[in-house]
């Protein structure tokens, strides 16, 4: 029964997202392709954060750092004339993983509020680094003249083609996080969140597992950064602003922590609401803020907990 509802939920979700471009094409509303592509890119970022926040209990308040690193990897290589996506994307992912490894190595030894503050501090450091480097546009950011090239296999300047690429990568990321969370590795991560003293007493050292998860999450978010840079064809230090980190965190919480569908649902609802409200009034944040607070108070399990078939276990 439960598995049945899950199957229907995911089938509807995949079908709806796959059919969106032809449908809005008929309606002559290409704007929605852009919007949902953005939603899906943020769903990748949120799914990667969910691995450490939802399953690992590591409340990282600096996850936007990897959006920035992934984005700047694409932007900087493109600036120097290296437009191959085969080079840009592995560099985006690899650089994000390395920085995550370094930040994680320092921050994971701390816990609770200290962990939050250290991750925030590192990301702010990167944000100001982005502002200070004039060569890459400093505060104003930098336009990416040529999007990532994949030997002519796919043209990322084509909104529909890049939409489907993002769609595939997003479901791939969600499935990957889903598998990791249920593997031996994921069980250690979740157990350490549930009861660290017990984990240590039966012989697990949570540190190395957490650090590994933190690095994987950084790498996946770096991919989202590369996608975002191609989506906007523009990179700015704002990719790494702390409010961006907060937004990604909010998507996870709103969608439902430690659930596979949660990050996508959270990204969808948050960004669609933001867009609708922004079209209606310029003071949209005044409305969105309280709505978010209410949703956290009344839906503790997040959207995944109230939509049939969206929850996991």
């Amino acid at each position: 029964m439960r598995a049945h509802a899950q199957l229907i939920f995911w089938a509807v979700l995949v079908a709806a997202l796959a059919l969106l471009p032809p449908v809005v094409g008929v309606l002559h509303e290409p704007f929605y392709v852009e919007l949902v592509r953005r939603v899906m890119i943020f769903a990748i970022a949120a799914a990667s954060l969910n691995l450490i926040l939802g399953y690992g209990g590591l409340v990282s308040f600096g996850h936007a750092a990897y959006l920035g690193i992934g984005g700047y990897a694409v932007g900087i290589l493109s600036f120097y004339g290296m437009n191959s996506g085969w080079l840009q994307w592995p560099v985006a992912i690899g650089a994000s993983a390395l920085v995550a490894l370094a930040i994680g190595a320092v921050s994971i030894r701390a816990s609770g509020m200290y962990f939050i503050m250290i991750t925030l501090a590192f990301t702010q450091m990167l944000y100001y680094l982005g502002i200070s480097i004039e060569e890459f546009g400093g505060d104003d950011g930098m336009r990416i003249k040529t999007r990532s090239q994949f030997s002519g296999l796919i043209d990322l300047a084509d909104p529909v083609a890049s939409y489907y690429l993002v769609l595939v990568l997003m479901f791939g990321t969600i499935y990957l996080v889903h598998r990791i969370a249920r593997s031996r590795f994921g069980m250690v991560l979740r157990a350490a969140k549930s009861n660290e003293a017990r984990s240590r007493a039966i012989g697990f050292s949570p540190y190395s597992y957490r650090l590994c998860a933190f690095t994987i999450a950084g790498a996946l978010c770096g991919l989202a950064g590369a996608l975002l840079a191609n989506h906007t064809a523009y990179i700015t230090p704002d990719f790494m602003h702390w409010t961006r980190s907060g937004e990604i965190m909010f998507m996870v919480i709103l969608g439902g922590v430690a659930s596979s569908a949660g990050p996508l649902l959270g990204a969808l609802v948050l960004l669609v609401f933001e867009t609708l409200l922004a079209g209606w009034t310029e003071h949209w944040q005044v409305i969105l803020g309280p709505l978010l607070v209410l949703s956290v108070i009344f839906f503790r399990t997040g959207l995944a907990g109230i939509i049939p078939g969206a929850g996991d276990e």
Partner: peptide, 21 residues
């Protein structure tokens, strides 16, 4: 099962669902 796993080598295994082992 977690206690068994803790003494069954390292747990850097990312793909196979632990609950069906």
């Amino acid at each position: 099962a977690l206690a068994i796993q803790a003494h069954a080598g390292h747990s850097f295994r990312f793909w196979k669902p632990a609950r069906s082992e």
